[in-house]
Structure formats: structure tokens, C-alpha cells
Design a binder for these strands. Structure first.
Length: 496
RNA sequence: GGCCCGUUGGUGAAGCGGUUCAACACACCAGCCUUUCACGCUGGCAUGCAGGGGUUCGAAUCCCCUACGGGUCACCA
């Protein structure tokens, strides 16, 4: 039997990292086994649906490279792929359940239910629907319907045997029927609830494996009940652990301590494969001979993936590690590719554009300058957008002196080093990296200072920082004038 | 509160009854490389696997209890 899996988001917002990871696991599983991966839009919550959410979702997935074999945009043999376009499909199943008395109309108002719930809570009991409408006679039901009293359809949970199912990650699961209330399967506006739509859809679309977040674990017995009620086979389940924030809590969409939306990663210049790579490692690990590696291409992930290597415990999202993974990908790509990726950020950077203009560089020279700058920072970027703050070193008029730089500048050898350095630089016939290197050598000879004692004052003076890229290259790209004016600036400060 | 699930270092994790079992990676610290910086490289970093009981010749690995954490209890998905 061919494996068929799906990712079934509701179109209520941006693609979330949790959703992306669930989708990724589904994708990897399908590809690994040569099955189909389906995107289905679960849009039965008509109040919360957002118009552009589906479009955003699709754009984010395309960026990540997780393409589906069937979906609302590409079609397929099991469509349509949006719940709200399947209303006619659900209806017969609903009618049948009602006629078989496996489901029944409930006329209770929200207020009544709310009151019951509160009362139960006050008495320390588990709030649960009483089931009172289940026992209405046909005549009573008809009378209420004739009177236009709004109603929902509830599923009648009967019997007392346990509901059991297999979970690939958690093993044997069982729930007591008594713990499950008669849940709503069709809302008063005639739209099925998620529980109903999802089971009908999974059944009709012949989904073989339901891979979803752990928050659905306690919904699963309801779905099992529904599969059984409509006489459909129950798919296999795999409930993957949640992604937690630093405090070990489920991510809240309002939590701004970490970047939660794929769109943000796109905007900041994370590479899609790096995001996939990191997400795959959240709750899953390859084990075996690949235990010592961390960087895996999408193809490699497909090759290595398996459900039984998914962890049970929730995984705490670690932004730093993601950044590291991303930096590994940035280091690995060709310089030309990196330049192309950096271009949009640079073109939007007014300061850089102004810098190019001031230096009167023609297009070719400007491209060459961009190339030099990107090359200089390739090993220091953890995301593409970093290029903008990084090149401030060269584009801003004055250096901003940080605390560490100031500490260096008060050292006793600084005046002597700077004086000599200014002289040697001034004497340079040609201002090139190799000549600059010679000049520094000469400063060393003249002053007797070398190593940190020599380089740090110059670095701190010209860049305002004690960390940065190769000094010769930095001085060269800074340009003679800026270098000298900054030296001059610091000399004045030190004297006064 | 009921029902579920989980608990190996700051983080991701390996380990699935016994030949270094506490890998590997991020972070951190130290050293090397570099006349500086960054990259890179090397090393350090859990005496104990939440705690307590068992089972066993032997347990992080099996069972039970407790604690703690999480998820879920909607006409949301």
C-alpha cells in the first residue's frame, strides 16, 4: 500500500515553525517511502479564517522547498482540498450518522452549556456535556426544528469499552469512553467541526499515516470513534512532541522572544535548507553512524528519516543553534551565490548606496567592491541580512567606539603606534592590502611593538572595535582618507 | 481538577539490561593557528541519567510510587 500523508493547517495566519516542522516530518516520511504528501486546508473555522493566509502559507512552503503532490493549488484525484469546498461531501455522512442514531441534534444554547460547565467546575467535577438532548424523542426534535431553534449535531459516545490506538511515537494508547463527552461534529451554521471534517477527509483521501502535533493526542480517541462510526479503517498515528520556548512552555503566537514565523526567517536571510535542517533536528535525530553530524541536506534527511527516531519529550527551540546551522550553510555556498543573496539587502541599504556614490565607483567597480565586502564577511555572517550591519564598518562616516576599544586606546603604547602608523600610511605610494601590510611591518620596526600591542590600537582606532575581519583588508577597504582621519580623531582624544 | 504525555548537562540529543554507558552538536572556558581579529583546530565542561522503591548476578535502559513539567478538556483547529 502506498503511503499517503497530509499537513492540514487552518488558514488563520502565518506559517509557524511548529507547523513547518510538522509539515517537514510529513514530507520526509512520504518521500522516504515513495508516498504522497498532501496539503489540505482545514478552513471550517469561518470566523478565524484570514483571506491571505492560504497564500502566505503556500508561499512559505514553496520557499522552504516542501512541495506537495496534491493540494488546493495543484489539484489531485482526491479533491477538493479545502474543507469549505467539501460541505456536500460531509453531508451524507452526517445524515447517515443521525439516521443510525450515532449522532443527534442538540438544542442547548451556549449560555446553558456555559452555566452547566461552571456549575460542574464549582462542584469540583469535570465539566462535560450532560447528554440531555440525546434522549429527545423524534417528535420533540421535529418540533424544535420546526420552531427554527438552532441546533448542533453531537456524536453519541456510547458503550464502555476502552478506545485504543497505536501511536508510532508513544506506543499503545488507550482512553476511557466515559471521559469523552458527546462532542459536536456539526456547528449550528451547518459547517462540520474540525473533528468531523478531518476524519472524513482523512478517510476519503485515503490517508495512511496521521503525523501531527502532540496537542492532538487527546483528540485522537474522538477521531477513532468517528472512523469506526463511518466504517472506515483507522489510519496510523504519530504525535510529535511540541516545540517549547526557553521556559519550556508551548509557543504562544504573541511570544516575541523567539522568531516563530517562517516568513521572518525568510526576511532575515536564513537559508531554507538551514531552517529545514534545524527543524528536523528538533525532536528527531538520525542516530547510528550519522550521530556525529549535524548538517543534513533535504535529500539526506529524506534518506535518514524515520518515525521511530522521533523523541517523546518536548523540544526547546534554540535560536542560537539555528543561527549556527545557518552560518554553516552560508559558509558552504559559493561566493557568487552569496552575493546574489546579499544584493537585495544591500540595495535597500541607503547608507551603502550613498557610500558607493561618494566613492564615485562605476557599476563595475561597485560590483567589485560588493564582492570584496561580501567575501570579507562570509565567514562571519549567521544570516544574510547581517551583511548590512557588518558593512557599516566601512560605510558609516565615523567609527563608533565600543567599551573594549576604549580600553585598548588608553594603553600607553597607543600614541607612539598611531604616530608611526599615520606617517607610514601617508608615505604609501600605492594604497593596496600588500603595501599596507608592509607599512605595518615598518611601524613594528620603528616602535618595537608587535602582535596585539601593535594591531589592537590600529584596529580599535580605525574601526572602533577590537573584533573584525582581516586588518590589512579592512584598512584597504576603509580607504586612506578615512583611516587617517580616524587616527587623527583618536590622537586628539588621547592628547586631551 | 479529570484524562493523556513526558523527565539524560544551560540547549538539541546518543544511549534501547552488561565489550569505556554517559557519544556527538550548540553555547561556554582554555590552548593552538594568525605578528591582530575572525574562521579553523585541539582540549575542558553530567561521579550520574528528576527522587524513592523494586525486578535482576547486573539498570539511564524493565516495573511501581512520588515530585515536577507539558498537552487537552469549545458550536478553535
Amino acid at each position: 500500500m502506498t503511503v499517503r500523508v497530509r499537513f492540514a493547517p487552518s488558514p488563520t495566519g502565518h506559517l509557524h515553525i511548529g507547523g513547518a516542522r510538522t509539515a517537514l516530518f510529513n514530507y520526509l516520511f512520504a518521500k522516504k517511502l515513495g508516498g504522497s504528501y498532501i496539503l489540505r486546508i482545514e478552513d471550517t473555522d469561518t470566523l478565524r479564517n484570514k483571506d491571505d493566509a492560504e497564500e502566505k502559507l503556500i508561499r512559505a512552503f514553496r520557499w522552504l522547498g516542501l512541495t506537495w503532490d496534491e493540494g488546493p493549488d495543484v489539484g489531485g484525484d482526491y479533491g477538493p482540498y479545502r474543507s469549505m469546498e467539501r460541505l456536500d461531501t460531509y453531508q451524507p455522512f452526517l445524515d447517515k450518522l443521525v439516521s443510525e442514531e450515532k449522532a443527534y441534534p442538540c438544542f442547548c444554547t451556549k449560555e446553558e452549556l456555559e452555566a452547566e460547565r461552571e456549575a460542574a467546575q464549582q462542584n469540583g467535577q469535570t465539566p462535560r456535556y450532560s447528554g440531555k438532548c440525546r434522549h429527545l424523542t423524534k417528535e420533540q426534535v421535529q418540533a424544535k426544528i420546526d420552531a427554527n431553534i438552532p441546533y448542533v449535531i453531537r456524536f453519541a459516545v456510547t458503550g464502555d469499552n476502552e478506545i485504543q490506538f497505536q501511536d508510532h511515537i508513544r506506543g499503545d494508547m488507550s482512553f476511557q469512553r466515559a471521559d469523552i463527552e458527546d462532542f459536536v461534529i456539526c456547528k449550528s451554521d451547518g459547517v462540520p467541526t474540525y473533528h468531523f471534517a478531518v476524519t472524513i477527509d482523512d478517510s476519503l483521501m485515503e490517508i495512511t499515516h496521521v503525523i501531527r502535533g502532540e496537542e492532538h493526542l487527546s483528540n485522537t480517541p474522538k477521531h477513532v470513534l468517528l472512523f469506526e462510526a463511518i466504517g472506515a479503517p483507522v489510519p496510523e498515528f504519530a504525535h510529535i512532541p511540541l516545540i517549547l520556548n526557553e521556559n519550556g512552555k508551548k509557543l504562544s503566537k504573541r511570544d516575541e522572544t523567539i522568531l516563530q514565523f517562517i516568513e521572518q526567517y525568510h526576511d532575515l536571510g536564513y537559508l531554507p535548507d538551514a531552517v529545514n535542517n534545524y527543524l528536523a533536528l528538533l525532536g528527531w535525530s538520525p542516530g547510528g553512524e550519522y550521530n556525529e553530524e549535524e548538517i543534513f541536506s533535504l535529500d539526506k534527511l529524506i534518506q535518514l528519516f524515520s518515525l521511530d527516531r522521533i523523541n517523546k519529550a518536548g523540544a526547546i527551540f534554540n535560536q542560537e543553534k539555528l543561527s549556527w546551522v545557518n552560518s554553516q550553510y552560508i559558509k558552504a555556498i559559493e561566493l557568487d551565490t552569496l552575493i546574489v543573496l546579499c544584493k537585495p539587502y544591500l540595495e535597500n541599504d541607503k547608507e551603502y548606496q550613498e557610500y558607493l556614490r561618494q566613492n564615485e565607483l562605476d557599476e563595475e567597480e561597485a560590483n567589485e567592491r560588493t564582492r570584496e565586502l561580501v567575501a570579507l564577511f562570509q565567514t562571519g555572517m549567521s544570516r544574510i541580512s547581517d551583511i548590512v550591519p557588518l558593512i557599516k564598518l566601512f560605510t558609516s562616516e565615523n567609527a563608533l567606539y565600543d567599551e573594549e576599544a576604549n580600553q585598548v586606546l588608553i594603553q600607553e603604547q597607543v600614541p607612539a603606534v598611531l604616530t608611526s602608523f599615520a606617517t607610514k600610511i601617508n608615505e604609501l605610494a600605492e594604497y593596496t592590502p600588500s603595501e599596507i601590510k608592509k607599512a605595518l611591518k615598518a611601524v613594528q620596526k620603528e616602535t618595537g611593538y608587535k602582535g596585539k600591542q601593535l594591531f589592537m590600537p590600529i584596529r580599535a582606532t580605525t574601526t572602533g572595535q577590537v573584533h573584525g575581519p582581516d586588518l590589512n583588508q579592512t584598512l584597504y577597504l576603509l580607504g586612506k582618507e578615512k583611516v587617517l582621519s580616524r587616527v587623527n580623531h583618536v590622537q586628539k582624544q588621547v592628547v586631551s
